[in-house]
């Protein structure tokens, strides 16, 4: 693994230089949200920010994706694909929890049984530069409870760690090392930098104040599909999609055809287990008719089904659903309440 040092005031220049050569997405302040946007000339990428409002999953798994187009002609139906595929790009400033979410999404979209060409194409052509959390950005962060770490390199190609006056840049993967070639001359990192990182890492882990019993509740979930506890979560739920849409790991989708005249397209759009239409079948039957059942689904999917299937919790502890739920349904509280049952 290559390790370099980048002076603090040089970072913005380096990223901007990259953006001249390829598509770079970076966190940018947009009114009172911080969002990932295409870095254009003159734009300043944010390096000192907490986290983006939305998770970066949309870069590989867009909210709406055209899978194919079709046209009704006199000769029959003509099918066509969608363009030449994804461009090479860099995703700069991803937080470790969000970077880790890509590893979890890979388990769904890029696995032995099923390979999703739409997802894989974009994922392969993207290099991820993550920004380690030297200080956990929010008091609602709980990455360490679900298998992550504020300074983890999981899912990242390059990890930047803020050492005060400079960044330690670790080029973790071959993809990351390839990017190094485009970044110009950078001085090699010394042992001191690594020692500082070690120290910061420990401190950051200790600074995380939210802890949930993420792994501990699995045996209870295995046994208690029908438990009165499930009657206690959903009542105030608005059944909106905020939690699932902002979530870095939620990946349920719907496929539908949109036809205008003789042209049609097949699109894949995000779905949400919070929506009443989520499991509605063509016959009209809906196996999950109540919000209670849908909430159980959300919890079970994250802390049981995903664990059964892929041996990992489908939550990275970013805390977005906690912070932005309009009615403050707090997954930390739910998990901890379950652990006390």
């Amino acid at each position: 693994m290559e390790k370099r040092l980048i002076k603090k005031d040089a970072l913005s220049g380096i990223i901007n230089k990259l953006s001249e050569q390829m598509l770079v997405y970076a966190p940018v302040k947009d009114e009172d949200n911080v969002l990932f946007k295409v870095l254009e000339k003159g734009m300043e990428p944010l390096a000192d920010y907490s986290n983006t409002r939305n998770a970066p999953k949309n870069f590989f798994f867009p909210k709406t994706e055209t899978m194919m187009r079709y046209m009704r002609t006199e000769r029959g139906i003509e099918l066509s694909g969608e363009g030449e595929g994804a461009p090479e790009m860099v995703l700069f400033g991803v937080r470790p929890c969000d970077a880790r979410s890509f590893i979890l999404l890979d388990k769904v979209f890029d696995q032995e049984k099923y390979k999703d060409p739409y997802y894989i194409d974009k994922r392969e052509k993207t290099t991820i530069i993550s920004l380690a959390c030297v200080h956990p950005p929010y008091s609602t962060c709980f990455c360490t409870s679900v298998g992550g770490h504020p300074m983890s390199s999981e899912g990242a190609d390059v990890v930047l760690t803020d050492l005060g006056d400079k960044y330690l840049a670790e080029f973790v993967t071959p993809k990351g090392e390839k990017l190094l070639e485009k970044m110009g001359d950078l001085s090699k990192a010394d042992d001191a930098a690594e020692a500082t990182k070690e120290e910061l890492s420990k401190k950051s882990e200790e600074a995380i104040t939210s802890h949930v019993a993420g792994r501990e509740i699995k045996p209870w979930l295995d046994e208690n599909f029908e438990h009165p506890f499930w009657d206690t979560i959903h009542q105030s739920c608005l059944a909106c999609g905020t939690c699932t849409y902002l979530c870095p790991t939620c990946h349920c989708f719907d496929i539908s055809d949109e036809v205008k005249g003789s042209d049609g397209k097949r699109i894949r759009t995000w779905d949400s287990c919070m929506y009443w239409l989520f499991t509605k079948e063509t016959s009209g039957h809906n196996p999950r008719t109540s919000q209670k059942q849908r909430w159980r689904q959300r919890l079970m999917h994250k802390f049981k089904y995903f664990v059964d299937n892929f041996d990992a919790i489908a939550c990275v502890g970013c805390g977005r659903c906690v912070m932005y739920c309009p009615v403050n349904i707090d997954i930390r509280k739910i998990v901890n309440d379950i652990s006390k049952l």
Binding site: L238, A239, C240, G241, T242, Y245, S272, W276, P326
Partner: peptide
């Protein structure tokens, strides 16, 4: 807008059994 429908779902006047978007 990310079409999470939080606005619609919190609105007391939005009580259509099946919203036109669905």
């Amino acid at each position: 807008c990310i079409r999470c429908y939080a606005c619609r779902n919190t609105c007391p006047s939005c009580y259509c059994k099946i919203c036109f978007v669905e």
